[in-house]
Computed example of a mutant assay.
Amino acid sequence: MPHDTSPLHIAQSLLRCPSVTPAEGGALTFIEGVLREAGFEVHRPVFSEAGTPDVENLYARYGKTEPYLLFAGHTDVVPPGDINRWRHDPFSGAIEEGELFGRGAVDMKGGVACMMAAAIEFIRANPDFKGSIGFLITGDEEGPAINGSVKLLDWARARGERFDHCILGEPTNPNQLGDMIKIGRRGSLTGKLVVEGKQGHVAYPHLADNPIPGMLRLLNGLLREPLDRGTAHFDASNLEVTTVDVGNPASNVIPADARATFNIRFNDLWTPQSLEEEIARRLREAAGNTVRYTLTVEPTNAVAFITEPNAFVGFIADAIEAETGIRPKLSTTGGTSDARFIVRDCPVVEFGLVGQTMHQIDERVPVADLDRLATIYGKVLDAYFAVSA
């Protein structure tokens, strides 16, 4: 019997798969069956790396010609927490008062379901369209993100796959469907500071060297001036000190060292390299010749990027407005996503469901929003491939 390819049925089927990172849980197997039935060529590469769990992924393509529109997402989910606090089993796909409950309903099995439903409906209605539709689905977005999208994109590139544009179905809307499109993301850089001192008795400070005043000088040097004032599409970069610690349980001991960690969410005025240079400069000025310290900057793959508003972004905004009556805000807010990897291969835009319950107890999505999101994706497909007809 052919699969029911309505967005609700696909979403329910995916929610019933316990695919907590890195477990596949049957989710990718279900997607494979549905897409093969619709005529997609499907691959299931598994990637490995020492010290990390193996991760199953999925790549599918329908069509052989250009233009190539890629849908991207993930089927892995965060743990449900205490299942006794849920109104329904988090892997049951239960519906109550018009809402579909389950871990991943919003982030982002619901979005994947809507993409699949829209693509299959478009292919049925337009069997001879010019172009290709693809799916790039990982099982490692909520985990370390090592054996997922990065390697899947490398694998596809090695096969000669070239994408023109991508829609990533992360939950982008803060309040209601249609609020927001993400056209870029800030980068993320983490640094760790250690100020060296000399442990001693507080009554004999001349025999010790307290590192805390030095740490205060360094942090003040980092925070005194803003990194920038933002750009046309980005807020100002911000540095947040997340830990300061001397590991000292005694009130009569001067500590041996002081440690601090900070994170910077930065815009497209910076690269990780230029930002590291600016941080080092500020610390040198603050330290002078008196503060002994070391700075360690952690490697990052989260680099700021922007997809300039263009015809592709316009297709999506127009489709959203036509279905919801809302002209979406073009935003670069929030944390990182797999878009930071995809942008190396093609322009990428994020649009999905409302994110208010993601990662929460009783994560859920209105069934009506699933239908509307699938309709929006369908309108994007109509507009995208009409230009190439």
Score class of each variant (00 low, 15 high):
Val46Asn: 08
Ala94His: 09
Ala113Arg: 01
Asp369Lys: 02
Thr52Val: 07
Gly247Ala: 09
Glu225Cys: 11
Ala374Leu: 10
Glu142Val: 07
Ala368Gln: 06
Ile254Ser: 08
Glu225Ser: 14
Gly39Lys: 03
Arg327Ser: 15
Leu28Pro: 03
Pro90Leu: 12
Arg159Phe: 12
His43Glu: 14
Gly352Ala: 10
Gly25His: 07
Asn57Gly: 06
Ile320Ser: 07
Asn173Pro: 09
Leu35Thr: 00
Thr324Leu: 08
Lys130Gln: 14
Gly139Pro: 07
Gly200Glu: 04
Gly73Tyr: 05
Phe341Cys: 00
His9Asp: 13
Arg224Gln: 13
Ala72His: 10
Thr29Ile: 11
Leu227Trp: 02
Glu142Phe: 01
Asp345Tyr: 13
Thr296Gly: 13
Ile183Tyr: 01
Asn147Ala: 09
Asn310Ile: 05
Val354Gln: 02
Asn126Ala: 09
Ser388Asp: 11
Gly325Met: 12
Pro7Phe: 00
Pro53Lys: 04
Arg327Ile: 03
Thr294His: 13
Thr290Pro: 07
Pro90Phe: 06
Gly33Tyr: 05
Trp86Asn: 03
Gly73Phe: 02
Ser331Gln: 06
Met115Gln: 13
Phe266Met: 06
Ala250Met: 08
Asp338Pro: 02
Glu66Val: 02
Gly25Leu: 01
Pro309Asp: 02
Tyr293Glu: 05
Phe262Gly: 01
Thr172Gly: 05
Leu153Glu: 05
Ile120Ala: 00
Gly39Val: 02
Thr332Ala: 09
Thr300Phe: 07
Leu275Ala: 06
Ala383Lys: 11
Ile320Pro: 06
Gly51Arg: 02
Thr231Met: 07
Gly230Asn: 11
Asn238Gln: 11
Gly187Arg: 01
Ser237Thr: 04
Thr190Gly: 06
Gly197Asn: 10
Gly98Ser: 11
Asp338Lys: 00
Arg281Thr: 10
Leu227Ile: 07
Ile212Glu: 11
Leu219Tyr: 02
Lys182Ile: 07
Val112Leu: 08
Asp382Arg: 12
Leu216Ser: 14
Asn175Lys: 14
Leu373Ile: 10
Met1Asp: 10
Gly148Pro: 05
Leu370Pro: 05
Val387Gln: 15
Asn310Trp: 02
Thr29Cys: 12
Arg224Leu: 12
Leu189Met: 09
Leu216Asp: 13
Val244Thr: 13
Val313Gly: 00
Glu141Pro: 03
Trp86Leu: 11
Leu222Asn: 06
Ala94Pro: 07
Ala208Val: 08
Met115Trp: 04
Ile361Tyr: 04
Lys182Glu: 12
Glu142Lys: 05
Tyr68Leu: 14
Leu14Cys: 09
Val343Pro: 02
Phe312Met: 03
Arg36Met: 02
